[in-house]
């Protein structure tokens, strides 16, 4: 692991959409990279596809901010994927995800209520 993790204090700040989606995909259970990219695709009905390089840069940032961490224990059903690294939410990641979701929900509700198609 690169040494810079030790010095950097997690900085609070808004989540980018990729970061939000990755956090959301980890809400139920720890996942590995491929699992996360599948989960993101499924959750967004195939509209968002995180490219591998981008996915790992997002993971790198989330690790750095202390929102996710490496999961030691891997789910038993994924026996095939034992050699892959699994990630899970930290308590802070969980809180941040919830706050961000609430914020987005508020905005989304207001948008829907004002949209002409609905009126």
């Amino acid at each position: 692991m690169s040494p810079r993790r030790m010095e950097d204090v997690p900085e609070p700040g808004p989540l980018r959409s990729g970061e939000f989606l990755v956090l959301a995909s980890l809400q139920r259970a720890p996942l590995h990279g491929y699992g996360i990219s599948q989960a993101v695709r499924d959750r967004t009905s195939g509209r968002v596809r995180l490219r591998p390089g981008n996915l790992y840069r997002v993971l790198d940032r989330l690790l750095e901010r202390g929102l996710i961490e490496l999961a030691d224990r891997k789910p038993a059903r994924d026996r095939d994927d034992q050699r892959r690294t699994y990630y899970r939410l930290t308590p802070q990641g969980r809180r941040t995800l919830a706050m961000e979701a609430e914020l987005l929900a508020d905005v989304a509700l207001e948008v829907i209520s004002l949209s002409p198609a609905k009126a």
Binding site: S2, G33, P52
Partner: peptide, 15 residues
């Protein structure tokens, strides 16, 4: 390099 060391294996898997 640091990035490669940390994520290279998983990235390769993903590829």
């Amino acid at each position: 390099r640091g990035f490669r060391e940390q994520y290279g294996r998983d990235l390769a898997e993903l590829y």
